[in-house]
Structure formats: structure tokens, C-alpha cells
Design a protein around this nucleic acid. Structure first.
Lengths: 178, 178
DNA sequence: CGGCCGTGGTTCAAGTTTTAAACAATAACT
DNA sequence: AGTTATTGTTTAAAACTTGAACCACGGCCG
């Protein structure tokens, strides 16, 4: 099939996207490196954990949520563990599994640095978007994510795992401590 | 001042953005690595050069256009030069300067791999956006870029250079061969 | 002219990440 | 039981990025 080139409007949008995403990732990394001593991805690990029930997540779930490979996550968690922000525990229900747990220290770090991070995001992104644009942004990005996750689960593993409900202890995927 | 947290809508949009951008950059890198043997940034270098007058650009201009540091660009161009896709020339009007030139080989590589790249972008992004969303995407991203470039020219150097017009040979910044 | 500062660009020295592939352990299915 | 799939880590090697230092040149000013 002959190439479906981008229209001029699409080209402009694409260029704008590339520029924005490069600048944004750069700004986030810089700000967080300065205030939290870690790049954006690592901060996201902590943020994700902080919102999980009991502040703990299986490695695979965490990787999936962050859209990164397990290998990459292992590396990240290793560093965060060295920093004392995260601790690893064995999963009680699946002896293969390990669980990343946000430590008190990690939580404190997060609480200390979140305001600065949010402020950066706000100034870079949301301060100049009206509510409709916010909604459009979500829709657009959700569509992109869906397109990329649907077609090619390129990340290690297997794509969306459809499994039995979480409340069957003998096969549940998450390891809450309770 | 007390932290201006994100509203729930903003949070959703932000999460969606992060997921999409990670997945997208990953997909682009993977596709280009496979078909062109280089990551997205390097491909962008070639693409940028291909559109410049005479397929050549000053290093600083190129870096600015790509929103990366000069150092990073030097590294990238060094590799592209080793690959034969780019050649360096001295700038005739400014003996400090050097100019990156897209070689025939580089142009051929670009022409060979552009269709696959465009197809990836289309499938990931534009195939599921209506014209209004395309325009919104451009506006939103342009706003982000502006916010980030305006406030903090964190990239090496100096921010927007306001200089004399380009047509004064004794101080023009670009080195067309003509 | 001569001195100084600013800019363009590269180099250096680390260090950080990343990746892919291989592996060990356990689980799940047949 | 035996095979196959998952989980998560490890390993080895690259690839990349960064920041600072640095050199050479250009521009300005007295």
C-alpha cells in the first residue's frame, strides 16, 4: 500500500507534540533530580506505590502500570531500595513473586517533593489549558495508549491478563498484607 | 503558597499523558531501531536536516530545533557521521561553527524508512483523531512548549536569540552553500 | 589595535540507563 | 508427571546523557 503521509495539519501537530514531550520530560527530570534526587520514572514508581492499597504492588503490576519492562523496573527498584525509599518483600501467595513496598522514608520523600512536582506540571501544562482541553488531552492520550497497547504488547510478557477475580486468595495477584 | 493540587480531571489527563508518551516513545524507538537502525532522536536529526535549505544546518540551530543540548547533539551527529548519514563541514562565515549536512546516503536511508515511520505514527496517533482533535493537540502542545521555553531556557546557551536578519552575510547564522 | 567577554562546538570523565538474552524458581495446565 | 508459562533477577554489553572544562573564534569597547 502507498504511504499515507501526514497532512500539513497533522505534521504541525506532530512536530508540536515532539517538541513538547522532549521539553516536558526534560523539565520534569531536571526538577525532580534537583528536589528529590531522582529522575521522573523513579518518582513515578514511588507515586504509584503510594496510591496502591497498603502502598505495595507486585513487580509485574507495577511495571505494567508504568508501561515499562520488568527488567527496567528491577533496576529502578534496586536503586530506590538502596536509597531506602522502597523495600522488597516476598509475596505470600506466589513464591515466585516479590512485592515492592513504599517505606515510611519513601512516603516522606514523596510528601516532601510532591508539591514542587505538581507545581511544575501545573505551570508547564495545566495552567494554560481550559477544562475542555484537559478533557481532550485525556481522550487523545487514552486513544494513543489504547492503540499501542492493543496492537503490540511489545513489553515483556503478555498483554492484558484476564484472570479470575482478585478476591480469591489462592490466585490473587496482589499481596496486601492484611 | 499552598500547593495547587491537580483536580481529578487533570489527574486523569496527566496519567493518560504519561502512559501515552512512554508507550509512544517506546514504540517509535523500537520501530525505527528495527527499520533504520537508530532511535527516534537520531532519525529526527536526519528528518530535520532533510527539510532544511540545502539539507544543512548549524549545530546550534539543529540542537535548538530538536530541543536538546549541543553536547547531546554532538554525540548524535558523531554517530550519524560514522554511519555515513551525515557529514560535517566548517562554516564559511563563522570559523567557530560547524555545519551538519545530510549525505546522499542519509537521504536514501530517510526515504527508505520514512514510510514505515509515518505509518507507525499514523496508527498510534492520527488514525483515531478527528480534525478538531488534531488541532487541539497542536494547540495544547504548543502551549506546553511555550511555557517551558519561555520561563526557563534550561538548555545550554541562551534562549531565543534575537539577532539581525538572516540576509546580512556578515552575521548570518546559517551557512547555505550557495 | 588589544583586551575581554560571550558564543559555538567539542571533549572528557563519569555515571546512568537501557536492552536482550539467559536463568532459576515456581505455578498452571493436560 | 511432565510440559509449558510466568515471575523476577541477573548479566554483559552498549548506548546514551550529563556537566564541566576547554579551545577557538567573534564582537565590542576603549
Amino acid at each position: 500500500m502507498t504511504t499515507r503521509w501526514l497532512t500539513p495539519e497533522e505534521q504541525r501537530a506532530w512536530r508540536a507534540y515532539i517538541a513538547a514531550s522532549v521539553l516536558l520530560e526534560d523539565a520534569l527530570d531536571r526538577q525532580l533530580q534537583q528536589e528529590a534526587g531522582m529522575p521522573h520514572l523513579y518518582y513515578s514508581v514511588l507515586a504509584n506505590l503510594s496510591e496502591a492499597p497498603d502502598r505495595r504492588l507486585r513487580m509485574t503490576d507495577l511495571a505494567e502500570s508504568l508501561k515499562i519492562t520488568r527488567s527496567r523496573l528491577t533496576y529502578a527498584v534496586a536503586r530506590l531500595e538502596k536509597d531506602g525509599a522502597v523495600r522488597r518483600e516476598d509475596c505470600k501467595w506466589d513464591k515466585r513473586g516479590s512485592v515492592a513496598v513504599l517505606t515510611e522514608e519513601g512516603m516522606a520523600l514523596l510528601e516532601r517533593t510532591a508539591p514542587g512536582h505538581v507545581e511544575t506540571v501545573r505551570r508547564a501544562v495545566f495552567d494554560h489549558l481550559d477544562p475542555e482541553q484537559v478533557e481532550q488531552l485525556e481522550r487523545i492520550c487514552a486513544g494513543i495508549a489504547e492503540a499501542l497497547q492493543g496492537e503490540g504488547p511489545r513489553l515483556q510478557g503478555d498483554g492484558p491478563r484476564v484472570g479470575p477475580p482478585d478476591d480469591l486468595p489462592w490466585r490473587r495477584r496482589s499481596c496486601s498484607s492484611g
